[in-house]
Write a protein that binds this DNA or RNA. Structure first.
Lengths: 234, 234
DNA sequence: TGAATAATTGTCTTTTTTACAATTATTTTT
DNA sequence: AAAAATAATTGTAAAAAAGACAATTATTCA
């Protein structure tokens, strides 16, 4: 069989922009790079794509290695490929972003990397083009979360409306009217009201809600805008 | 300096999903692959990323090689990386999609590839995972065009409302009410009505419109949905 | 002059969005 | 036990956007 003889081979990596919400602020999980170049500088968690591994599989592996978590929301963001982005050797990096409930994350699992959570407005200098990756991920998160119910991935299974609203407000750096917010959220039909209340954060207590998984999957791709029904679903 | 000694190097390519509109139908520009494996099978136009070239640059180069066109709308779609996607040797492909006015394209430029335009509902079998790339590009085009004024990239500088509507109808495989469509389009403030009419396609003639470039750039990123103003612009 | 053709335009109804504040449940304090 | 404090919950009216629906207009051709 022929081969693609004359072409350049190069390294391929993945990097993960890991968003987490601790109930207060949206944060980013960063590590201290464990090897040269730029050893001990802050960095996104990443890794090289292995011989028999897709980029998706590599990102899943890398994410699990750092957080210990499976089944996390993870999606490809963008491939970064400037020839000089890694000074040692040409490397293409496929960036992914992940959304996790940061309460599930246990630091102990990967102490090897000295991971830390940073609020989005206090992200330190990052190696290579990781700053740009983070910027793009933030932009994409806002874009996507305006149309799809993905921010729930950052919350525990049971959450209150005030908590949900504070998450949205943090993501979009704005405030919403409580009445309008709850009406809009409830009208999506995605939430199931629970009988129990969270009594930890207020005297009156706030009802818990859960996602209605059936409607969640069915409605995930829905959106309306210029085109009333872009996917022909309704 | 250290090197990333133990890692696998692999091939990196780009593939272009080229959409064109000829005034009637949205079409896809495909080529007949010029080398083994799968020689003479239908394929997306693609090429390997060169040593000193980013993926964006490679996609631009490849697109120009086939169409002769510069300054075309081109955006990264997704990186495809299944280990066995190319049977000869492991290759990651970064897919891009392009939007061109197919009247600008001249077949002669690249007769080497025997390129042909195919309506979207008559796309032949394609090599490797190119079918999947096309599916994803169609989906992404619909998604994005519902929120951003990118379909204009498929039209000549002057176009009529009936032509614009037929393009939207073709992209979304549906029909729109003429009155509501024009009201909505005009209300974006993106169009400048011209004094001349197109008299070729009807007795009455239809007024030409042009894009208002200033508003186009300013409003490109705007959209409204769940979040009234996700980018804090207004 | 009339018929044919396709572009252009208007209104009413329904739905969605927005702006805005009083009431309720519970705990803490007096 | 009553009152105060705190935060959650709920309603309504006005404005804007979307949707349904058909008559009129400009032009060419017979």
């Amino acid at each position: 069989m022929t081969k693609y003889q004359k072409q350049t081979r190069l390294l391929a990596a993945v990097d993960c922009i890991i968003f987490g919400f601790d109930g207060q602020k949206l944060k980013l999980l960063l590590i201290q790079r464990g090897f040269e170049p730029e050893k001990n500088k802050w960095s996104l968690m990443g890794g090289f794509i292995q011989t028999e591994e897709s980029a998706d599989a590599a990102a899943t592996r890398v994410l699990k290695k750092l957080t210990g978590l499976d089944g996390v929301y993870l999606q490809q963001l963008h491939a970064f490929s400037a020839p000089d982005r890694d000074p040692i050797e040409r490397t293409i990096s496929i960036a992914y972003f992940a959304l996790i409930d940061s309460n599930l994350y246990e630091k102990q699992i990967s102490d090897e990397y000295h991971p830390e959570w940073f609020p989005l407005d206090k992200v330190p200098d990052l190696i290579f083009d990781h700053k740009r990756m983070v910027e793009m991920a933030k932009e994409n998160l806002r874009y996507k979360a305006a149309l799809h119910p993905i921010l729930f991935e950052l919350l525990p299974p049971r959450f209150t409306l005030p908590l949900l609203q504070s998450l949205f407000e943090d993501v979009y750096e704005t405030t919403f009217d409580k009445r309008n917010f709850s009406r809009k959220i409830i009208s999506t039909g995605l939430l199931l009201k629970q009988k129990e209340k969270d009594k930890e954060n207020s005297k009156k207590g706030a009802f818990y809600y859960k996602l209605d998984k059936k409607h969640y999957k069915k409605n995930f791709h829905k959106f309306q805008h210029f085109i009333p029904n872009p996917n022909g679903i309704i």
